[in-house]
């Protein structure tokens, strides 16, 4: 009887474990595509702020570029 109850859905706490597992999985394993996407945004920001050679950008970012060790001009 107890055995039967324990196997019934929602009565043994297993469902909580399952939920917890699913949540952990959803939280931690960020997809490779979104990781790549975030890295690409970061690299684009770096390129625009640090490496792009438009005169306006260069002048505006000038001191930061020197102070971060970018090849400036």
């Amino acid at each position: 009887m107890r055995e039967g109850n324990a196997n019934a859905v929602g009565c043994d706490g297993k469902e909580r474990k399952m939920n917890a597992l699913n949540q952990t999985a959803a939280k931690t394993s960020t997809g490779l595509m979104s990781i790549l996407f975030v890295a690409l945004i970061g690299a684009t920001v770096m390129f625009v702020a640090g490496h792009a050679q438009s005169a306006t950008l260069h002048d505006a970012a000038h001191d930061m570029r020197h102070a971060t060790g970018f090849p400036c001009h």
Binding site: I35, V38, A39, G42, A43, M64
Partner: peptide, 17 residues
């Protein structure tokens, strides 16, 4: 502004890591 910006870019790459 640009120091904030460049480190924001670095920050994104760091968390992607």
């Amino acid at each position: 502004l640009f120091t904030g910006l460049i480190y924001a870019g670095y920050g994104l790459i760091l968390v992607a890591g």
